[in-house]
Simulated assay, not measured.
Amino acid sequence: MLRPDYPLTSERLVLRPFTHDDFDDLYAYNSLPEVARYLYWDARDRDQVRAALDKKVTQTELTEEGQYLILAVHWPAAGKVVGEVNLEWLSVEHRQGETGFVFHPDYQGKGLAREAAEVMLRLAFEDLGLHRVIGRCDPRNEPSWRLLERLGMRREAHFVQNEIFKGEFGDEYVYAMLGSEWKDRQASTTSTS
């Protein structure tokens, strides 16, 4: 079970549950076709963003497998929510999870997604006690798979045309990290600091 003590902070960011006050910030990136291009939904209109936000505000803890924890990534320097990170509890028995991220294009390339994703990996491994966390993305989405690699995840699979995605067969990369690898990575980061 995971009930984080909010807000969570990193060097530059505040991660917290979404609130209905985040509508404008969420709409700013959920409405962009380039953001939705590699996601399972299309660019959203205001009503669709409102419906998505209504669900996100409830996804604040993990009490059983199959649930999602979805957190708003607030960047105080910008004074707004610039993206979101998530953690799905895939299996209690096998201690498996999946993480992901979505960021406004104006705030990409600044290391913010990596910083936020590292907080989610810490929650997954250190607080929830997961053994393994995966990340999945479309191979055409190079910024996403490069981020997964910068996080220390290894590419374990390239599924070729494994699903119909937005009307055509698409490929998928699967990355993974073990809890022991996370621990080793943290130890090595601490020793070089």
Rank of each mutant, 00 (worst) to 15 (best):
L2H: 13
D5Q: 14
D5I: 10
P7R: 07
T9G: 08
P17T: 02
T19V: 13
T19I: 10
D22A: 12
D24E: 15
L26W: 00
A28H: 06
N30G: 13
L32S: 07
L32F: 04
P33I: 07
P33M: 08
P33K: 12
E34C: 04
E34F: 09
V35W: 12
V35Q: 08
R37H: 09
Y38G: 01
D42A: 08
A43M: 01
R44K: 15
R46M: 12
A51W: 08
D54R: 08
K56L: 14
V57S: 05
T58W: 08
T58N: 09
T58Y: 06
Q59F: 13
T60D: 03
E61M: 12
L62H: 09
T63S: 13
T63H: 04
T63P: 10
E65N: 09
Q67L: 05
L69R: 00
V73G: 07
P76A: 00
A78K: 08
A78P: 07
N86G: 13
E88N: 12
E88K: 14
E88W: 13
L90K: 14
E93Q: 01
H94T: 10
Q96F: 04
G97C: 06
G97V: 02
E98W: 02
G100E: 02
F101V: 10
F103Q: 03
F103T: 06
P105L: 07
D106H: 10
D106S: 13
Y107D: 08
G111M: 09
L112P: 10
A113F: 05
A113W: 01
E115K: 03
M120Q: 11
M120F: 03
L121A: 02
L123V: 15
A124Q: 09
A124L: 10
F125M: 12
D127N: 10
D127L: 06
G129T: 00
I134M: 12
R136E: 14
R140F: 05
E142T: 06
P143K: 02
P143Q: 03
P143D: 12
R146P: 04
L147S: 03
L147V: 11
L148R: 08
E149Y: 05
G152H: 03
G152R: 00
M153Q: 12
M153R: 07
R154A: 09
R155Q: 12
R155A: 01
A157P: 02
H158Q: 02
H158R: 03
H158Y: 05
Q161H: 07
K166L: 00
G170H: 11
E172F: 08
Y173D: 06
Y173N: 01
V174A: 12
Y175E: 12
Y175H: 14
A176R: 10
A176K: 03
M177I: 00
M177D: 04
S180P: 08
E181Y: 01
E181S: 05
W182T: 11
R185W: 01
Q186K: 15
A187I: 14
T189I: 14
S193E: 15
